[in-house]
Amino acid sequence: MSVGLEHFLVLSALLFGVGLFMALAKRNIVGILMGIELMFNAVNLSLVAFARFLEAAERLSGQVFVVFSITVAAAEAAVALALAVAIYRRRESVDVDRINLLRW
């Protein structure tokens, strides 16, 4: 019995599914954000697995991509949580069902 690329890809797909469910279905903005972070993690995992298992001219490129992905995710988390706090200050709520200012 051995562990190959497929194992990591299946795990990554399942993690992505959990994250997508949270991002689509959670009521609280912070919960949605946690789902987005889980999806980031799933994609990073598959990139690192590809870098480890596939032949390429520069095999380390996958890991460099993940470095950038982590950077962008950190920036995204900072801005998104600032948005959550700003929305809460104005509307006294972080319930996405009640943030419907743009609804016609």
């Binding site: 279905a25 959670k26 009521r27 609280n28 919960g31 706090v85 006294e92 972080v94 069902d97």
Partner: peptide, 14 residues
Amino acid sequence: LTPRAARDNAETGM
């Protein structure tokens, strides 16, 4: 920082 928004992790109707 969002205390009144109960620490609820519930889902919407979707």
